[in-house]
């Protein structure tokens, strides 16, 4: 009996979470708190006026707007879009140096040290959520003091994108480990999810049927962005079925 319990505990410890996010579009108000939180959490630099004019802004998460109807009977819909962490990611096979790959937990990983800046991945991404560092990022003093030490500064010449706040997932795991317990649902929260005032975003392990995100995915309202491409994103959008 005791052996069985130990075995189960071991199996539990080896269980690999499958990270996924559910975004309820009916709740999103387009406030962009997630955009701000993401930039400050992940040391995402501002491009500056000139570079922005050339389309070189970096936003690991953005809010897409959709207008329905004509003024004054107009309705706006918002959709936060970040890296969709696809299971069949178009960015991965085109990388000549394996700088981007899907890890066991379903995260699309970008390894800055490996990236040689071919930009194939960004060109092959249907969601346009990959950003190239044309120049070394700069933060005018005293903004350099607010940089997050848990996240590497990406040098010039490498690609970057949303990581699902991999550093926060790591931190949650280490904290759970230090306290000698299993990682609980809601322990790992990306900055965007944490900051959402409307609680439109839910993040968690979709392989755990009891997790909040798994329940959202089973709600019958969920769909994926550009589903027809077969990229199998890990980001699910919930909206009222028409």
């Amino acid at each position: 009996m005791a052996e069985q319990t130990t075995q189960q505990a071991e199996q539990g410890a080896e269980r690999t979470p499958q990270w996924a996010m559910a975004i309820d579009l009916d709740r999103c108000t387009g406030c962009e708190a997630c955009v701000v939180a993401c930039a400050s959490e992940n040391n995402v630099p501002t491009a500056g006026e000139d570079q922005a004019a050339m389309g070189r802004t970096k936003h690991w998460i953005r809010i897409d707007r959709y207008y329905e109807g004509e003024f004054p009977d107009i309705k706006v819909k918002y959709r936060p879009v970040m890296c969709q962490q696809c299971d069949e990611a178009p960015c991965e096979p085109v990388c000549p140096v394996n700088a981007t790959y899907q890890n066991a937990e379903g995260l699309n990983v970008q390894i800055y040290n490996r990236c040689i800046g071919t930009r194939y991945c960004a060109n092959n991404c249907p969601y346009t959520v990959r950003f190239f560092n044309w120049f070394a990022p700069e933060w005018a003093a005293p903004l350099n003091l607010q940089l997050n030490p848990d996240v590497s500064i990406r040098p010039a010449g490498v690609m970057e994108k949303c990581t699902f706040c991999a550093h926060k997932i790591k931190r949650a795991k280490l904290d759970a480990d230090a306290e000698g317990r299993e990682l609980a649902d809601g322990d790992a929260q990306p900055a965007c999810v944490q900051s959402c005032p409307a609680e439109a975003m839910v993040f968690g392990d979709m392989s755990d049927a009891d997790s909040k995100v798994a329940k959202q995915l089973g709600s019958g309202r969920s769909g994926q962005l550009l589903e027809s491409l077969g990229t199998k994103p890990r980001v699910f959008y919930l909206e009222k079925a028409d």
Binding site: A104, V109, I111, V151, S152, A166, H167, K170
Partner: peptide, 8 residues
């Protein structure tokens, strides 16, 4: 030995 263990 996942790259993400140290590089993020």
């Amino acid at each position: 030995d996942d790259c993400l263990a140290c590089h993020f």
